[in-house]
Nucleic acid binder design. Structure first.
Length: 441
DNA sequence: GCATGATCATGC
DNA sequence: GCATGATCATGC
């Protein structure tokens, strides 16, 4: 009998054996002929690695792939960012969410933790042209357990998802609900006819899985690449607490005071993004960009409010091209992508004397019903672009969103399906809508 | 050069 | 006062 190549009971031994794949594709290290014909590009590389490289097949079990070592094997695609730099191609799916059982669980003893407490993550270079067994593993394998600094945030994310299901709102789950751990769409049960049952509501819900969000994964990769290991928020704090802590010394201060304190000053009288620039500096300690926000895929927006509590302006989003939107689906649109995110609102209040102060910071994500309304506006925009790209939904037509110019000037245009040119546009969240949102925060 | 977040300006 | 139209500074 052949001597085993690794010790199934030892995470370190499994890790060491896995590193034999680094720099190679699966096809380069195992005999392929037996299975090659049966594999499509979309197959599960993790399963193949487990079967053919580790020669290990535990069968369908609820726990980790290597039960004795408590190690769950994951493979995930990465893209090349710069030479030697990688980023996640997509979220890393961890485990399906069991709507029925999760409501009886707590995080530490949850089925998610049972399965994914310790994970061996292998990164392969994504290449659509190649079958999965020809894609090369890049980077060393990562033996991952939740870093202490990330634990409070991930636990909070998990609890948020569980609580939403316990409240009978599984159908309203959204990736914007959480910071690092997301409830992503996964598996059958996505279409109207095939929705899943949930325990505390008769409304069908889309099937979902726990996943690490792409931005969190990127930070894991980044720190794995550099081995510098400084993964973010202050010890023992949740994400929200850590952000509050950063802003705390500046709350109640006027904009010039903050400017002074940070040693960062207006470059021009009309420096439009000045408050935003200040906030980036508050969050980044003067160095690189706001690392925690980036990691969690959070969208920071500054809002200036008048003495009456109303924002001065509507909130703009990235622009769109008329010729693009007519071929897009809502769920692929950049507007959808943005409003699904979690927002960090930094609110500046302007008093009667015109003095502007950093009043408060708060997280927010768009409620389900409002996302549906935003979708309606988006669909209506798409419909009208085809008819007349100059007649788009106005603020008066929806309580949530509208379309308005966003360009350098009136000559800054995109071509229209009608064969003309029209000034560049973007989606906006209505001023009054934002007013309602922030007064409840 | 251009997209982006944000704010200014005008007319009703 | 507000909705709509127009534009700015910045960073990549």
């Amino acid at each position: 009998m052949e001597t085993p190549k690794y010790d199934k009971t030892s995470p370190k031994s499994i890790l060491k054996f896995a590193s034999g794949l680094t720099g190679k594709s699966l096809a380069q290290v195992v005999e392929l002929d037996t299975f090659k014909e049966n594999i499509r590009n979309k197959g599960d590389l993790g399963l193949l690695v487990e079967n053919y490289y580790f020669q290990h097949s535990p069968g369908p079990v609820a726990g980790p792939d290597f039960p004795e070592a408590g190690v769950e094997l994951k493979t995930t695609g990465v893209l090349k960012k710069n030479p030697g730099n990688y980023k996640a191609k997509e979220r890393l799916v961890l485990k399906m969410i069991d709507f029925e059982n999760i409501v009886h669980e707590n995080f530490e003893s949850s089925s998610l933790m049972k399965k994914c407490k310790l994970m061996l993550i292998l990164f392969y270079l994504y290449d659509a042209e190649k079958p999965i067994y020809d894609r090369k593993f890049v980077l060393d394998p990562l033996l991952y357990s939740i870093p202490e600094d990330d634990f409070p945030t991930i636990k909070r994310d998990w609890e948020f998802i569980r609580n939403k299901i316990a409240d009978g709102l599984a159908h309203e789950l959204s990736e914007g609900d959480t910071f690092y751990l997301g409830a992503c769409r996964k598996g059958a049960g996505g279409t109207q006819e095939k929705l899943r049952k949930q325990p505390f509501s008769s409304v069908g819900a889309k099937s979902r899985a726990f996943s690490f969000k792409p931005n969190y994964l990127n930070k894991l990769i980044e720190s794995h690449e550099s081995e510098s290991g400084n993964m973010g928020v202050s010890r023992g704090l949740t994400f929200e607490e850590a952000t509050q802590k950063r802003f705390k010394p500046f709350l109640g201060k006027t904009v010039p005071e903050i400017s002074q304190k940070l040693g960062y000053f207006r470059k021009a009288a009309f420096h439009k993004g000045f408050n935003q620039d200040l906030c980036i500096r508050i969050l980044s300690n003067g160095k690189s960009v706001a690392i925690e926000l980036d990691k969690a895929g959070i969208e920071m927006k500054t809002i200036r409010v008048n003495p009456d509590g109303k924002p001065r302006e509507s909130m703009s989003f990235p622009g769109f091209k008329f010729l693009d939107i007519i071929n897009e689906d809502w769920e692929d649109s950049s507007f959808f992508e943005k409003i699904e995110k979690k927002f960090l609102f930094v609110i500046f209040e302007i008093d009667e004397l015109g003095v502007e102060r950093l009043a408060r910071v708060a997280y927010w994500n768009m409620p389900y019903a409002d996302r549906l309304e935003a979708q309606r506006v988006w669909e209506e925009t798409k419909r009208r672009v085809l008819i007349d790209a100059t007649q788009l939904p106005r603020q008066s037509e929806s309580h949530v969103a509208h379309v308005r110019p966003k360009a350098q000037n009136a000559q800054d245009t995109w071509p229209t399906p009608q064969g003309g040119e029209h000034v560049k546009q973007c989606f906006w969240l209505n001023r009054n809508y934002i007013a309602n949102v922030i007064c409840k925060l």
